[in-house]
């Protein structure tokens, strides 16, 4: 018996089996179930009704389009604000970049709900209305570090002799940036886009807290339907969100090196 066991674990590729089993049971099977629920009705027979219900309900479609817009805008603002920050920090000529980088990364480790509540408190304190703008800037606050970090990482690992060579060969600073630095930093920007866009498109509690439930995002709609027991419709909505996520993550393959935290 003991010998059999030792023989079995002697083949080291089998050591991954428990993990594979857990992944199949807790990740793959649940995703299949989402698909199953999405294409069936409460009795369990096949139907497309859940999707028809979504696409013929102008409220739901509007919320979906609106959420996409908010997520895209948030991501854009994060790039515009975050790229210069990462660029300045990675520049070797500036002081104390290590401490700076750490200060920007630090908020990533704080619970997103707490950060959101703190932002709500700040807006309250400054008497800023909790409306659409507050929602967007609140989300920029929440996710800006996730944009700065990967860009900073890519820029820092970039070979500095490349922009120097371009400058030596007569390119203007603007040209050096546009033709050399920017293209080389694109993997970081791509990772940043994924790390910001994914959580903003799928967020639910954050929008609720930032606007005191005045603005509903797609995530909130999904959560409400699931909570109210409309599992089949909720599953269909989740599947639609999964499609968006799949498009984003295959469109811009996340660069693992730049977004690695450890």
């Amino acid at each position: 018996m003991m010998k059999k066991l030792l023989n079995f674990i002697g083949r080291r590729d089998r050591w991954a089996w428990p993990h594979i089993a857990v992944m199949l049971f807790l990740v793959v099977l649940p995703l299949i179930l989402i698909m199953g629920y999405a294409f069936t009705d409460a009795e369990g027979s096949f139907t497309l009704h859940n999707f028809v219900k979504f696409f013929t309900n102008s409220d739901a479609v509007n919320t979906f389009v609106y959420s996409l817009g908010i997520a895209l805008m948030t991501t854009m603002i994060c790039i515009l604000l975050g790229y210069p920050a990462a660029y300045f920090m990675a520049g070797k000529q500036f002081s104390t970049p290590k401490v700076m980088a750490m200060l920007f990364i630090l908020p990533m480790w704080i619970n997103v709900l707490l950060r959101t509540l703190a932002t709500v408190a700040l807006f309250d304190f400054l008497h800023i209305a909790l409306d659409e703008k507050a929602l967007m800037f609140g989300m920029v606050y929440d996710f800006l570090p996730f944009m700065i970090y990967p860009i900073y990482n890519t820029l820092q690992k970039m070979d500095n002799s490349l922009p120097e060579a371009a400058a030596d060969l007569g390119a203007s600073p603007l040209k050096v940036f546009l033709r050399v630095t920017l293209p080389l930093s694109m993997p970081g920007v791509k990772s940043g886009i994924i790390m910001v866009f994914m959580p903003t498109i799928s967020t639910f509690a954050i929008a609720e807290l930032l606007t005191q439930n005045n603005i509903k995002l797609f995530g909130t709609v999904i959560q409400e339907n699931v909570n109210n027991g409309l599992l089949n419709y909720g599953a269909a909505l989740s599947l639609i969100m999964l499609v968006i996520i799949a498009i984003t993550s295959f469109g811009g393959e996340k660069d693992n090196e730049s977004s690695q935290l450890f």
Partner: peptide, 16 residues
């Protein structure tokens, strides 16, 4: 699981 957004992970396991 690393690509999946939290809400999908949550809902899918909930359905399981």
């Amino acid at each position: 699981p690393m690509i999946n957004p939290d809400i999908i992970t949550g809902i899918s396991i909930f359905m399981l």
